[in-house]
Amino acid sequence: MFAFYLANGTLDMELLEDIDYRPALMQFGSPLEMVFTIFTNVLEIDENGLVINEGDAQVRAAQWIRHYCDPSYVVDPPFQPWETELAGP
């Protein structure tokens, strides 16, 4: 669902209400890659393979998008290094 909301322009409507983030993210690959990095790094899955915090992961990704599109927006709490760390090969 996350990718659907992201591509549809309806990810976290309250936080991103007046921001059309899609052109900014789709212009270059790195911003979109960071959105998915944050989402998947924050996402937690229980021992049964069920996602237990999709909403939290969506909010953190939306905060990054908001800051990317509006540098005056302050992410609270600030991102931790593990949230933005890209997985290597």
Rank of each mutant, 00 (worst) to 15 (best):
F2L: 07
A3P: 00
A3H: 03
F4C: 06
F4N: 14
Y5M: 12
A7Y: 04
A7K: 13
A7S: 08
A7L: 06
N8Q: 15
N8G: 07
N8Y: 12
G9W: 04
G9H: 06
G9F: 06
L11R: 13
D12A: 11
D12N: 14
M13K: 15
M13G: 13
E14K: 15
E14V: 09
E14A: 14
L15N: 11
E17W: 09
I19C: 13
I19P: 02
D20Q: 09
D20Y: 07
Y21Q: 02
R22P: 00
P23K: 15
P23H: 11
P23Q: 12
A24G: 13
A24M: 12
L25E: 01
M26P: 00
Q27I: 07
F28Y: 13
F28L: 10
G29Q: 08
G29R: 12
G29W: 08
S30F: 08
P31W: 12
L32K: 10
E33M: 13
E33G: 15
M34D: 05
F36P: 06
T37S: 07
I38Q: 00
F39N: 04
F39M: 03
F39Q: 03
T40G: 05
T40L: 13
T40I: 08
N41C: 02
N41E: 02
N41R: 11
L43P: 01
E44P: 08
E44V: 09
I45N: 02
I45M: 07
D46K: 07
D46S: 06
E47H: 14
E47S: 14
N48I: 01
V51N: 04
I52F: 05
E54A: 09
G55K: 12
D56R: 15
D56K: 15
A57H: 06
A57I: 00
A57F: 03
Q58G: 02
Q58E: 12
Q58K: 15
V59M: 11
V59S: 14
V59W: 05
V59R: 15
R60D: 00
R60N: 01
A62Y: 04
A62K: 08
A62V: 01
Q63W: 04
I65V: 15
R66L: 08
H67C: 07
Y68S: 02
Y68N: 04
Y68G: 02
D70E: 14
P71W: 07
S72F: 05
V74F: 05
V74E: 11
V75H: 10
V75P: 05
D76V: 11
D76P: 01
D76N: 15
P77V: 03
P77I: 06
P77K: 10
P78W: 07
P78T: 05
F79Q: 06
F79H: 07
Q80D: 06
E83H: 14
E83D: 05
E83N: 05
T84A: 09
T84C: 12
E85S: 15
L86T: 07
L86D: 03
L86C: 02
G88V: 13
G88E: 14
G88Y: 10
G88S: 11
P89S: 11
